[in-house]
Simulated assay, not measured.
Amino acid sequence: MLTIRWSPQAPLQPLVLGWLAAAGVEVGVLRLDLIDPLISGNKWYKLAPHLTEAARQGATGLISLGGPHSNHLHALAAAGKRFAFPTVGLLRGEPCETPTVRDLQAFGMHLHWLGYGGYRARHRDGFWDAWRERYPQLHPVPEGGGGLTGARGCTVLRDMLSPQLETLGWSDYHGWWLAAGTGTTLAGLVLAEAGAHPVHGALAVPASHGVAPQVRAILAEAGMADAGYRLLDASRGGFARLDAALARFILDSEREGGIPLDPVYTGKALLALREQIACGSISRGSRLVFVHTGGLQGRRALASHLQALGARG
């Protein structure tokens, strides 16, 4: 029986960068990357309600999907090892070795490689039937922990924020800023805010990945109006696309601000914030909560490329 009681808290820290100070914009970073060395970032909050549902249904573990650098599968496998429940990962592509895949294996996750065509079939009706038959004791979790269940797990972030505002000298804030990969965490914050504060999502993937309809579907299922948020393209042409300008920005921001960023999500989101400030979309005096969604484990595969690009003049 799955009975896990763990409610990690993330600290709120000021982000001190020259371009923010010059613009008169204050940013507090909700450091989800610090909740745990392995079960890091927003992934735990999306997984937690799936674990609760699995326990309700009498399941003994979880099965889910992701790529060979998946932060979601990494957090799931780490949770399985930490709390002693079985995990199965259905991976995109052909067998390969990455830092993430090595960790998944070390954590005891059983892996199945679906190829690319097999992975694309994940949205088809009946996809889970064969896997339920093969692993009847495991509860299936959508890719990235998505859907309304995962979004509801992220509503706690607002509760986590409120008692920490005074540490920044804030009585209130003007909105949230975060990267969006599936839109699940963003949808959870929209649900939690219920219109009180806007949520800005910097798309880490191209619009063709369908984040906007996914967010609309989650809100519709929850019976909430499709409002209170906006999505802007921060993908820079593709998921995990890293160019020299982004690499230099990440490395410069880390040196100045002291907070590590990942190139796939948080780096792109912070660069998108600077661009929005530069074009006048964020007004002087704004106080924004930037959600550090983790993902630093995935940076290992891009570390040398990041440094090489960042060194270009």
Rank of each mutant, 00 (worst) to 15 (best):
P49M: 10
G28C: 04
S286L: 02
G237P: 05
R287G: 04
G108I: 06
V101K: 07
A23K: 13
A106V: 05
G257M: 07
S286D: 12
K81S: 14
G66I: 05
W131I: 01
V16K: 12
L47N: 01
L273H: 08
C279V: 04
C154V: 14
Q105N: 05
H174K: 02
T149C: 15
A308Y: 00
Q137L: 03
A75C: 13
L30S: 02
W19T: 12
Y45V: 03
Q214L: 13
T167M: 07
V215T: 03
Q214P: 02
S253F: 12
A121E: 15
Q137P: 01
H209M: 15
S171L: 14
G181D: 09
R92G: 07
T52F: 10
G28I: 07
L30G: 04
W170K: 01
W6R: 11
P86H: 02
G280L: 07
A75D: 04
T149W: 12
L62Q: 03
S64C: 08
A84F: 13
W128H: 13
P99E: 12
H72S: 08
V101S: 08
G280S: 08
R158E: 11
A245F: 05
G18V: 00
I218R: 01
H200S: 12
P86T: 00
D129S: 11
K268Q: 10
L2T: 12
E275F: 08
T266E: 13
L306K: 00
L261I: 03
R122T: 00
R274Q: 15
G210P: 06
R120C: 11
L148E: 14
A187D: 14
A180Y: 02
G181A: 14
L178W: 02
L189Q: 07
M160C: 06
A272T: 08
Q9K: 11
R56A: 15
S281L: 12
V29M: 05
G257C: 05
V101E: 05
L104W: 07
A151W: 13
G89M: 03
G228M: 09
G169V: 06
T266M: 04
P198W: 06
L306A: 10
V215P: 13
W19R: 09
G147M: 13
G41P: 00
L12P: 09
A180N: 02
W6P: 04
A77Q: 08
D172S: 14
G80P: 13
E166T: 06
K43W: 03
F83V: 07
L138V: 12
G258T: 11
H72N: 08
R284F: 00
G188M: 14
P37T: 14
H69V: 13
L148K: 00
G126I: 09
Y265N: 06
P86C: 01
E166K: 04
G18N: 14
